[in-house]
Nucleic acid binder design. Sequence first.
DNA 1: TTGTAGGCGTTATCAG
DNA 2: CTGATAACGCCTACAA
Lengths: 394, 394
Amino acid sequence: MAQVARLAEVSIATVSFVVNDDPKAKTLTQATRDRVLEAVRMLDYRPNLQARGLRTQRSHSIAVLTDHLTAVPFANSTIRGVQERAWAGGYLVTTMTTDDNAELAAHAVEMVLARQFDAVIVTTAYTHEVTVPSEFAAMPLVLLNCFSGDGYRTVLPGERAGARSAAKVLIDAGHTRIGFINGLRTTWAAGERRLGYRDALREAGLEYDRTLVRSGTYETDSGYRHAMALLDRADPPTAIMCASDRMAVGAYYAAYQRGLRIPEDLSVVGYDNHTEFSEHAVPAMTTVSLPYYEMGLAAVDLLLAPERAGKGGAAAGAGGTAGAATGAAGGTRVVASTTSGATGSHVTEIACEPVIRQSVAAPSSRPRARVQHPVGSPIDAPAPRERVPLEVTS
Amino acid sequence: MAQVARLAEVSIATVSFVVNDDPKAKTLTQATRDRVLEAVRMLDYRPNLQARGLRTQRSHSIAVLTDHLTAVPFANSTIRGVQERAWAGGYLVTTMTTDDNAELAAHAVEMVLARQFDAVIVTTAYTHEVTVPSEFAAMPLVLLNCFSGDGYRTVLPGERAGARSAAKVLIDAGHTRIGFINGLRTTWAAGERRLGYRDALREAGLEYDRTLVRSGTYETDSGYRHAMALLDRADPPTAIMCASDRMAVGAYYAAYQRGLRIPEDLSVVGYDNHTEFSEHAVPAMTTVSLPYYEMGLAAVDLLLAPERAGKGGAAAGAGGTAGAATGAAGGTRVVASTTSGATGSHVTEIACEPVIRQSVAAPSSRPRARVQHPVGSPIDAPAPRERVPLEVTS
DNA sequence: TTGTAGGCGTTATCAG
DNA sequence: CTGATAACGCCTACAA
């Protein structure tokens, strides 16, 4: 920096002013400004951000603490979303995986504190309650895909509305008896989705038949078994909605085994938009996508755009290279943004949008196939598209 | 720090000595040492790593530049491996995804430079050549799952040996005619694997029949088609080796459609150990695992344990919380560690180990089934395990 | 409109 | 064996 100053024949302070284009120093000759910039280029000077951080007491970096990185492919989308917004705001993001290991977690906490991270995002592979280390009490922090009851700002997927819209897709197609293979009863998502399913039924004036609702494990097997049970009833549903694409795949198999074609004889909708399954299924599966990427964006927005909310909210930093951050959750559809009086917590729900593909049609009136197909395919994995009979469009 | 010094009634320098337990200050009273430690605890003092970094000109953090985070689930294993070793060495790792976007890449480079990262790992989702930004010429850098010809230290999966061992599994089971559905001809991995396949054949004194080798796209469809072509020959192979688990899944389908049972009538081996497919397949698929996690470890080892090699090699930092880094690639099987004279580059290959499951058996002598099964399963996704006929063990 | 000086929290050099 | 003291590179109130 001193070199730059010398080369540009100005003082060090002046250099500082122009590299940060400090508003206070609006009174700079364009000439000197150019001289400095030129010198900067000549020496390819780069401000030392560690030094700047020391001086300003901020690191311009945010930490993402996550329990598992490997578990879900979706985790990556979250990280991408976070990075996107963080970089735009001039922040760097470093993610730390704790693997549910207390030692790693402690190390992560230690690092966040010692390295002067400006903010932290606590996130989990699947939505559940977490307990935030008390050391973080004083920092800007948002919960991403998890919640805590400690009053931290929280962003969650709008599961209830998501399930509601999944059911609505079926209802709009004319179905009135809709089986629902929900997820693990103990998970938050399952609770929300049941509510959403009920919401849709109620709105349509449809009866809620609890025997049509089953509790699966999110796995293919489970979806298969429950779908079989549903289809073998005296009064089978004409559509099945599943709480995961994998279970929907199981439903596809069950339908196939019972000689039912999708969507002509049975409509199926999945959840997650786990494309490995839903997009490649035949027929392509109508499902609901989880807005991981958008949630990542929203989390950073919450951090960077200080709200009047209780905890959290870092100072909006000096803009980075790529323009300032837009308003909170700009562009993405926010289902709800509640500030609950009870807990005092502020939760932002990002919409789970339905993804319409080919597995839903109007209920058929023709006799249900009762064919017992030969026991199915030899493998627990995707079949090649081209040889499949039920394919609807290319 | 000043507070600690005051509380412990020592000088600031003394505090510095004990918190770093500086070897030069071995001449410290245990008493003062304890006093300082006590004061540290009382005030829960935490050294400001930014300040330390400013002073020492190192940040104790390493950057991972990756092209795509979302593309492969394996990327996560890599990151985990890197984090594991880095943390053990007292380093933090921040990964930056460039998405093949020049602007993002430029930003990443800028950040690495401005933030005083001590080292960088350049990595890619699938193995291919990269060109390292010239700005990194002066820093410790290792290439992970990619290569460049610029003399950087490189860690790669031992594809050739991996393919060789896959073929060997089949040969050891007694097969002499082994179909090979390789990957995209243009990829590095495909080249290596073909070599490995040939190595195994040669070692066993088996003829290399080029008509048995096909070039697929890594996708299920492709595996299915090529397997069909192989099975419909006048002299079909008794085993098929595939360059991806997905293609192996295609082979499973082809076998099923031709009335062939796996492994009784046809042996199949995959590649990648993409457990979503291989582990859940029925019968569980014998495959070869890619050592992503170990490669991550190795990359950091290369960085932290300064080699005599040309480029790269950061000073082995002061140990972190969790013990010092072990020797390079400690514990993981290194296939080869070549220092090629030509390029002057040093490449470490980590072994791709075979994962033995149930899809391989001795070739059968009984008549091949010629049944034409009804066109298969209705979906392009896993079938539930329980209803599958070919399951061998639970 | 530009320059001066002090300090952010550490570490490292040198006296005592 | 311990304690001043000078950087490290930058920001910023204040002076010129």
